[in-house]
């Protein structure tokens, strides 16, 4: 199920501003790939290009190739002219930096929201099962099972973020993108999410953007380092390597400076 992602020569623009330039990398299936780098280096923008969310910003556009290669060998060019971005986003789920459950919806409806889209009809018991399975997978079930009908906005920040993860995995995507999912959370909630990611990588291809280098070192198999040459210049991928190598013996001097805190 979990596909491999091949990115070739990706340029990302906001209007005429080139935000990210020339990214080429491969993301392995059933593993966690972490993207690190200073603020403004374009790692979040790059992440949002992987599920075609970048282009919903007015004026934003993409050049280059992103190819999804399933385990059975079928290949999809995400930016192909016959590809519907809605389908791409169904296959590639996303969790955002700030927890964003739908505030007017109950816990249950939040998880079921994606399942009810695109005219899908499910009978109640099948839906109940899927909601429970998703909440269990997100390690949230025991905490919310008695208040499924309460607003999702009433949960704590860490619970809300796990609710968003449950919502994202309920539609059974193949890839899960996480944009600094723990930056608004306390260390205990962060640990809960990290444990969850380790479980989820059995089934998904996970890409996580993080500012927390310990987190990248803890959870990921590969780490990509993004940097930018200066203010107003485009961000670019400096190197991507197995996480152990990035943190002990990186190919690039800039990477070593960044991960050891000698940056700038």
């Amino acid at each position: 199920m979990a596909p491999r992602i091949d990115v070739t020569d990706l340029d990302l623009y906001y209007g005429s501003f080139l935000a990210v330039q020339g990214v080429t990398l491969s993301i392995e299936p059933r593993s966690i790939t972490a993207l690190i780098g200073p603020s403004g280096c374009g790692k979040s923008t790059f992440l949002r290009a992987l599920n075609r969310l970048h282009e919903v910003v007015p004026g934003a556009r993409v050049e280059g190739k992103v190819v999804l290669e399933g385990s059975s060998g079928q290949v999809v060019d995400l930016y192909g002219s016959d590809v519907d971005p809605v389908d791409v986003r169904r296959r590639i789920g996303m969790v955002f930096q700030r927890p964003n459950p739908f505030p007017t919806m109950s816990v249950y409806d939040n998880v079921a929201a994606g399942l009810r889209l695109n005219g899908a009809r499910m009978n109640r018991s099948a839906l109940d099962d899927l909601v429970e399975r998703s909440l269990r997978a997100a390690n949230l079930w025991t905490e919310v099972k008695d208040r499924l009908d309460r607003p999702g906005g009433g949960l704590s920040g860490g619970q809300q973020q796990r609710l968003c993860i449950a919502r994202a995995i309920a539609v059974e995507p193949e890839v899960l993108l996480m944009d600094e999912p723990c930056s608004a959370l306390d260390p205990i909630s962060t640990l809960a999410i990290e444990d969850l990611m380790t479980e989820l990588k059995e089934h998904f291809t996970i890409v996580i953007v993080t500012h927390n280098m310990q987190q990248a070192a803890r959870v990921s198999e590969s780490t990509g380092f993004f940097n930018l040459a200066g203010p107003g210049r485009p961000g670019h991928l400096v190197e991507i390597n197995p996480t152990g190598k990035i943190f002990s013996n990186p190919d690039n001097r800039a990477t070593e400076d960044y991960v050891s805190g000698r940056f700038g």
Binding site: N51, L53, V56, V86, D87, R89, R90, G93, M94, F96, R98, N100, P101, F102, P103, A113, G114, L117, N118, C164, R167, A168, V171
Partner: peptide, 14 residues
């Protein structure tokens, strides 16, 4: 909030 809109879009909403 863009946050809500993107939550829906990222789920594959039209």
């Amino acid at each position: 909030p863009a946050l809500h809109r993107e939550a829906a879009l990222a789920l594959g909403a039209t």
